[in-house]
Simulated assay, not measured.
Amino acid sequence: MKALITTIPFAEKDGFPLELLKGAGIAYQINPLGRKITEQELADMISDFDILIAGTEPITANVMDNAKNLKLISRVGIGLDNVDLHEARRRRIKVAYTPDAPAPAVAELTIGLLISLLRHVPLSNHQIHSGEWTRHFGKRIADSTIGIIGLGRIGTRVLRRLKCFGTPRILVNDIKPDPELTRLHKIEWVAKETLYKESDLITLHVPLTPLTHNMITKRDLMYMKEDASIINASRGGIINEQDLFDVMKSGHLSGAAIDVFEKEPYVGPLADLPNCLLTAHMGSMSVDCRTRMEQEATEEAVRFVEGKALKHPVPQSEYDVQEAL
């Protein structure tokens, strides 16, 4: 069998996933473009491959029309908004993912971004590089109200890590409130509007679906305190990027940290804002977590070739979400 590896980087820090493929007799080709592949580029190159070890490129019906040999999509990561799951199922293409591997790294980056925003690190860095010396008053986590939207694998890890910084007020919002989290943590389940209005900093940890696309617009941002901040390390498109720029340009909000964008690589006006911290979709890019993601996705390919059951097939609940939308 032949595998196309589209996600980048791949096996850059650890070549073990490639050794796994070789050991299983799977021929492979790594993304020849060295960047995120477009839908049409993927459609043009996938025809001869049985397995796709995938990143965030669009895997649509158009792509599958040209993928006559495709039998498995093994997603390096957890987000599935780029995969047409029902089209894959209709064509009997199995889909696997690596749901737990990226979570620790994304949670830790979120904490780093959170501290940077509360203490105005991006703005101070920009000012010093510009020859200006200004000392900014900031807030400590323990004295802040932190809002978390989405308490899944990553949001829950962020919640746990916040306990190390004292006793901030923590407001949370999720479609399925978890009584066990209420028992273990001092949290308040609130409506989104309350969370927007009362938080000093909001961090987002929800999947991208038609329901969450543009979930946060100018109206929601203007509900927030004038000196509040917001973090998106989940999926691009959840915050309307133009609305965020307009609101911040007007002087509302003290900062934002954005790791994910609707179109990547990002080129847009947020880059002109000194208090907007931008990172290049690096949430999962710790050596250990990235290596684990690549290895787990490759192991699924090997299991498939060997006729074994997949360890992390995409659950029915993910298909149900796409069907409902």
Rank of each mutant, 00 (worst) to 15 (best):
E226W: 12
D100E: 15
I78V: 15
D259T: 04
I51S: 00
V247C: 05
I231G: 00
R290F: 13
M215A: 12
S286N: 11
E296G: 03
K22A: 08
Q40E: 15
E132R: 15
I170N: 07
A257T: 06
D84P: 00
T6F: 00
Y319S: 08
L221N: 07
I239L: 09
L171F: 06
E188Q: 13
W133D: 04
A43S: 13
K2Y: 10
L109G: 01
H312W: 14
P179I: 02
E300M: 02
A54I: 01
H252C: 05
E193N: 14
R119Q: 10
L310N: 02
I202F: 05
A3R: 04
L253G: 00
P177S: 12
V247T: 09
K94G: 02
R119S: 03
G77A: 10
D84I: 00
V206I: 14
L195K: 04
H86E: 12
S234Q: 10
A96F: 01
E300H: 06
D220P: 02
A301D: 02
P315C: 07
I46C: 01
E294I: 03
S47C: 11
H126G: 04
K163Y: 13
L270P: 01
R135S: 11
L208C: 01
L278S: 03
M222G: 07
L162M: 11
